[in-house]
């Protein structure tokens, strides 16, 4: 009778069914969300810079928000836009939404702003057309971008429902970027590379540019922060959570970061176990010669 093969630690660790790993990840992510467990969250410098940029804006100018995201990145972009809009509402800074990369953005952005206004209890005081507007979607090809950088009125003409910009208080006369213009800052909340357009076409106007991008895009954006082309940066859901914490908002991102942190911890443990299995196996093979 043949002896049963002995199972070593490295075999057990190396042959865990991937479906068990997924179940573990599911539980590790869900439990903190349900139980409202939280790990401390450190606010990073790029987030502080964005808040500082907002704090320095004049009241008589408007902030342009490029809402360039869709359902694919809404888990990151929606809390970012919500956090930014809520802070602008608290600072009583007028803002105008528009989109250049995804045709579904205007509707998503509109919903976010309406909910943010409700959350801040400003439904009766902060009116569409007077304090904020949505200019809708335009295709950002190079000639249009050049025109937009030169004259917002000429490039946009109407809001997303076809109302001429001249008929809305908040958009009337808003035409130029930078210190001489009527737009004090452009914030791009994006899940794509739309920010490249603003570096290329708006940097010469000296307008303050802020960015809220997905985690995937963030590492590429740090050089722009260093060069001063960006005035602040929110990195994915973490950036949104940091901004919520910094501006004392109770939003989705802060609650969701609990799940994010525990999921990272789980992935880290799995990485260590996987590598341990390989290292132990290699050591045993070497020992056997």
């Amino acid at each position: 009778m043949q002896p049963l093969p002995t199972r070593n630690w490295e075999d057990i660790l190396g042959k865990i069914d991937r479906r068990l790993v997924y179940i573990g990840l599911f539980l590790f992510t869900l439990a903190p969300l349900v139980g409202r467990w939280a790990l401390p969250l450190n606010t990073t410098e790029p987030t502080k810079m964005l808040k500082k940029a907002f704090d320095g804006l004049p009241q008589d100018k408007v902030v342009l928000i490029a809402s360039d995201w869709d359902a694919g990145t809404q888990a990151e972009s929606r809390p970012q836009l919500t956090a930014v809009v809520r802070y602008l509402l608290r600072k009583k800074l007028k803002f105008i939404l528009f989109s250049v990369t995804t045709p579904t953005s205007p509707q998503l952005g509109q919903t976010v702003v309406e909910r943010a206004i409700e959350a801040e209890g400003m439904k009766d005081t902060w009116q569409y057309g007077t304090h904020w507007a949505n200019m809708g979607y335009r295709i950002a090809n190079a000639p249009w971008l050049r025109n937009f950088a030169r004259s917002i009125q000429d490039a946009m003409k109407n809001d997303w429902k076809g109302v001429p910009l001249a008929k809305l208080d908040v958009t009337r006369g808003v035409d130029k970027f930078g210190p001489e213009g009527q737009v004090s800052m452009l914030v791009d909340v994006t899940g794509s590379s739309s920010i490249d357009n603003w570096y290329a076409y708006l940097s010469p106007s000296k307008v303050t540019i802020g960015l809220a991008c997905t985690g995937v895009m963030a590492p590429e954006q740090y050089p722009f922060l260093d060069s001063g082309q960006l005035s602040g940066l929110l990195t994915g859901m973490k950036g949104a959570a940091e901004f919520e914490q910094l501006t004392e908002q109770k939003g989705f991102a802060l609650a969701a970061m609990a799940g994010q942190s525990f999921a990272h911890l789980y992935i880290f443990i799995m990485l260590v176990l996987g590598n341990l299995s390989v290292i132990l196996g290699t050591m045993k093979k070497r020992a056997r010669g």
């Binding site: 990151e76 997905t214 985690g215 994915g236 859901m237 969701a256 799940g259 994010q260 999921a263």
Partner: peptide
């Protein structure tokens, strides 16, 4: 981190 955000 971005993929986990989508999952959350």
């Amino acid at each position: 981190m971005a993929r986990m955000s989508l999952f959350i």
